[in-house]
Design a protein around this nucleic acid. Sequence first.
DNA 1: ATTAACATTAACCGATCGGTTAATGTAATC
DNA 2: GATTACATTAACCGATCGGTTAATGTTAAT
Lengths: 189, 189
Amino acid sequence: MSASKRDQLVQNALQAFYEGGFHAIGMDRVAKETGVSKTAIYKHFRTKDELVLATLRLRDEQFRNWLVRRVEALADDPADQLLAVFTALGEWFDEPGFKSCMFIKASSEYQDRDEPIHRTAAEHKKLLQKYFSMLAKKAKLIEPDEVARQILILKEGAIVLAHIYGSKTVANDARRAAETILGASLARN
Amino acid sequence: MSASKRDQLVQNALQAFYEGGFHAIGMDRVAKETGVSKTAIYKHFRTKDELVLATLRLRDEQFRNWLVRRVEALADDPADQLLAVFTALGEWFDEPGFKSCMFIKASSEYQDRDEPIHRTAAEHKKLLQKYFSMLAKKAKLIEPDEVARQILILKEGAIVLAHIYGSKTVANDARRAAETILGASLARN
DNA sequence: ATTAACATTAACCGATCGGTTAATGTAATC
DNA sequence: GATTACATTAACCGATCGGTTAATGTTAAT
């Protein structure tokens, strides 16, 4: 199997797990929906968990790339970019295929914090927090790290609620909350 | 089976699903851990999904009762009560058995919004939102409904992050964000 | 043309899935 | 004491779980 075929397998498995859930989608189903035989899959991944890990690593890269690019397209000023996060989220929520965050779902199904899959989800969130922290520092906020953590909390809450009851206002509510928080952290300057 | 024994079955099943996940815990396992035979379980619940629904209804009642009582014990003023939500959450996060919110996990494993289990999770969140809305109105905030939705977003985000990487500051961060939001909504009065 | 190396297929493994059925135990009614 | 009603047990159902193995292609080097 060529490298690109392996990538396609991971991409298709990612799609299957995202749409169907990790435990609910079996390896036979993965084989069928990716067009790759089970034997071929197990040639590249020793266990299902390793395949799941590969899909999460791909998702991490895809999601953070998408977010950073979309945010940079939406705003120039770092403070505005922190708010643009929620504009981008709102666009994501409106996509027909939106089904919450893959890492929240992964941590829901692999609950133990020392499981590699759970740890991968945690690392993804840490990287997002670092990104927000960098923006908050560039925006010269008083307490950039705390604000970054709060932005992350708003982001995760918005995703969960957008998935649970597809509210059209949730991205907007989160954005306005972020505006208030940023406003308070700027005002003290 | 007496009514109280049925309640015990649901309570034990709730514990098993909360700790192990809905798809990961099979009915044989439920039977073993509740001490009730599978046949006896299926006398009261036609399907596994109906048992899951029963556990969610119980959890909804338990969680909201706990939250309201804890909040009322922590503060008298309605605005302070909205902040006390996050103090209560922090206590919950510190409990050894804490493993995220059962309804977030349910909506992660039963993703389709028209599934009864998913809808039950949505109703739980709606009821919390109503509770926050009532407090916000009693606190005479300018935009009580919007603030209530934002408090809910902060709550869900805090739960997710507390579960994913057990941060000790996440409840505090959310609380301070709520303080800022409430402060802004009071200041305009 | 033969052989060696690699992919792919599909049958198979024991275990478990959600759910049912037949047999056994137990208690109350007659 | 026989009968009825109900609980409980455990064996069982086909399907699917994660994972393996043997057989079959296919390709490339000899």
